[in-house]
């Protein structure tokens, strides 16, 4: 464990907590893409298959449980909670995210480190996570007014993967044989997808104006 990875995990945890806080306290999911939340629940479900088979550390198991429970409960809130579901704007959240699942799965079948079920599901979760934010970014472009919590949520989600890139660089230089192109490239693609959001988020913060994404 290095500081970059710990910071990355804490930032990721913060993004999930910000979202849960928003949904639970103000009972609203305005501006949040259910499709991105469903994709993230699938990412965690396919990535943490080894939750009960490989014990790495208490921290690792605990964080996996937190991410699994939080992502599925967010999906439940938006789908079924009698008040929250009313604020879900399904007419705007129209990204056909199922079109993301199949290509990622096919790619995982072709490009992976080992042709086993667990490894293919793990690789699938990496590719899927890289594109999972797309429905949310599309929704942000459509709903002009991005409230603070939603903006912070997306920012933290992008920041966590950026910190992971620093973690991979650190591990590459400090650990022999630590070379994982699949993880690095999908992590890089994921972070690049946030690039323009980061730019506008930083501009709004610097000029102290409301976050607006160009149509």
């Amino acid at each position: 464990m290095n500081i970059f990875r710990l910071a990355g995990d804490m930032t990721h945890l913060a993004s999930v907590l910000v979202l849960l806080l928003k949904i639970h306290t103000i009972k609203s999911c305005a501006g949040i893409s259910l499709k991105t939340q469903e994709l993230y629940a699938l990412v965690f479900a396919t990535r943490y298959l080894d939750l009960f088979t490989d014990y790495i550390s208490l921290y690792n198991t605990l964080m996996k449980l937190i991410f699994l429970v939080s992502s599925f409960s967010i999906v439940w809130y938006i789908r079924h909670h009698k008040i929250v579901r009313r604020s879900y704007d399904k007419d705007q959240d129209t990204f056909r995210h199922y079109f993301l699942v199949l290509p990622c799965f096919l790619l995982a079948l072709v490009i992976n480190e080992k042709f086993t079920v667990k490894e293919i599901m793990w690789t699938f979760s990496l590719y899927l996570e890289a594109v999972a934010i797309l429905p949310q970014l599309v929704l942000l472009q459509r709903t002009r007014n991005i409230d603070n919590l939603t903006g912070q949520y997306v920012f933290l989600l992008g920041a966590y993967r950026s910190l992971y890139i620093l973690n991979w660089i650190y591990r590459y230089f400090t650990e022999p044989h630590y070379v994982h192109w699949i993880t690095w490239i999908s992590g890089l693609v994921q972070t690049l997808l946030y690039a323009d959001f980061f730019y506008y988020y930083f501009q709004s913060w610097k000029n102290n104006v409301k976050l607006e994404l160009p149509a």
């Binding site: 990875r5 990721h12 080894d50 490989d54 690792n60 964080m63 996996k64 793990w122 044989h177 993880t183």
Partner: peptide
């Protein structure tokens, strides 16, 4: 062991 170590990240 290498595979086991490989998935030590979240």
């Amino acid at each position: 062991m290498e595979t086991f170590l490989y998935h030590d990240e979240l």
